[in-house]
Write a protein that binds this DNA or RNA. Sequence first.
RNA 1: GGUCUGUUGGUGAAGCGGUUAACACGGUGCCCUCUCAAGGCAUUAUUCACGGGUUCAAGUCCCGUACAGACUACCA
Length: 549
Amino acid sequence: MTRKDLANLMFPNVTETIYDLEKKYPKRKLDDSQIVTRYAPSPTGFIHMGNLLSAFIANKVAKDTNGIFYLRIEDTDNKRKVENGISKIIDDLANFSIVPDEGVMSEDSQKGEYGPYIQSERQEIYNVYAKYMIENDLAYPCFCTETDLENIRSNQEAKKERIGYYSKYATCRNMSVDEAYRRIENKEKYVIRLKSVGDFEKRVVVNDLVRGKVIFPENDIDHVLVKSDGIPVYHFAHVIDDHLMRTTHILRGEEWLSSVPLHLQLFLMLGFEVPKYAHLGLVMKIDENGVRRKLSKRKDKEAAISFYHEKGVPIEAVKLYLMTIANSNFEAFLDANPTAKIEDFKFDFKKVSASGTLFDLDKLINISRNYISRLTALEVYNYALKWALEFDKEFASLLEKYKDYSISIFNIERNQKKPRKDYDTFSSIKSHIWYMYDEYFTDLEYNWAKINDKKEISEILDSYINNYYDIEDDKDTWFNKIKELASSFGYCPDMKEYKLNPDNYKGNVSDIATVIRVAVTTSTMSPDLYEILKLLGTDRIKNRFINIK
RNA sequence: GGUCUGUUGGUGAAGCGGUUAACACGGUGCCCUCUCAAGGCAUUAUUCACGGGUUCAAGUCCCGUACAGACUACCA
């Protein structure tokens, strides 16, 4: 029996060779500066912040260099599969305007010459390499059972030796071809393991784009390459896929860093060119106990991107935030070029933080607030309506019913060099402007301030609406009238004068203005009163005044 | 246990052998002001996890320690 016989027994249907595959998936006709990279999630149907960040960066890098960004689905583990998982991922990405150039485009369509891009459809390809490795003594079948493996492990623990299936502990490594052949013929279960050529005493250097040189012992573990069900493990699939898809840069989470020595060995054994690696820091958070840990999609609501959707954080703001955590110099760039877009900024691997980023919701919200403040009133209206249609139907119907009026509300103090920044998210808008709609102006609780005597309030309001208020007044006239009103009730019309001689007056203009403000909004805080009154109109003002008696 | 990685303020961070240790968010105070928001002005790390060493000079280089994280699966 030869290795070739063994290989044929294991893979009777494989007729292609690795050389055929090389020809079938030729090197891409791109120059060295063009980056080919990918996002390769499992179809769990759920993208969380950390994943989104790496997809975002990968896409950015490809776009920056006029390269290719593709989507590959890694479904070699059935436990991770979820109904419609693929479309959910694609939709989420599309929401952030990340559309792959190539790869999986929808639940049942793929695009590109380097596919298939779903691992479960690449079984024949993996078989070709597995067969090649068996034939060339680069891998071997291993018949160890779970208990065999446990024994090895406990044995190693007892002797305080390194854990793993390697050298003298790799019991199937030196099994004769004849025995292996016989046992496979006997239908014994087996996995295929790498016949590692590494030496733990020797070092390999990994050149990581974000961390620089990282030195590891060589890998000497005979890792499982193909599971007993014939499906490859991640490591094997990664090397084959990324080579055949001619990926130039592998961007992935830090959790993969320590398996690079294995991957390097695989690339070498298979005669593949080694791609460049960039291991991104994990997105972390401080939990309730003050412990810094990986942002978890199960425990942390802010990990789910749907959280931002529900909250009404503009997608553009999330992108800006992602860019600032991807490259910390992005903020400075934006400061220097206020009108610049993310597309104008060039991503730099060297500027990626190697330590895990602590996810900062406050900062994201702040970015969102600033972003919303820069929109036009119409844009705010459209976004707010879109959000409300999904999450607050009642509010949505008011927005639709009073479209122009609503836009005018959003316009208050917006067209000025430094626009008002009331709204941090679209979901927060209603709490700022509810009182502008009569439909909501019921069951009121007035928050009177300094002047809280019913009789005085009533007199002030009567006098104002009967003797002073005119909707046609310009702002100066309007305010002068408030001052006159204040004087007539013994309140100082001028703030400076009041501060000099507070004892000469019952109070000042602001106290009077506050009465009017509370009467129409119930609150002591509001945007520009002049604008509010003007938008409400005389009749509504009157009604609200009467309401108070 | 082993192998890696990381550690600069409340937070994100700049810094790459000589700087007053940037900048942004947040906090605090004051000013402006009809309120709020915004804005303006201040202020918020005598010190870069700790201990040694190299150097005329160290967050910055080296070594130890501590802490945190990742990996150590027939999961990715």
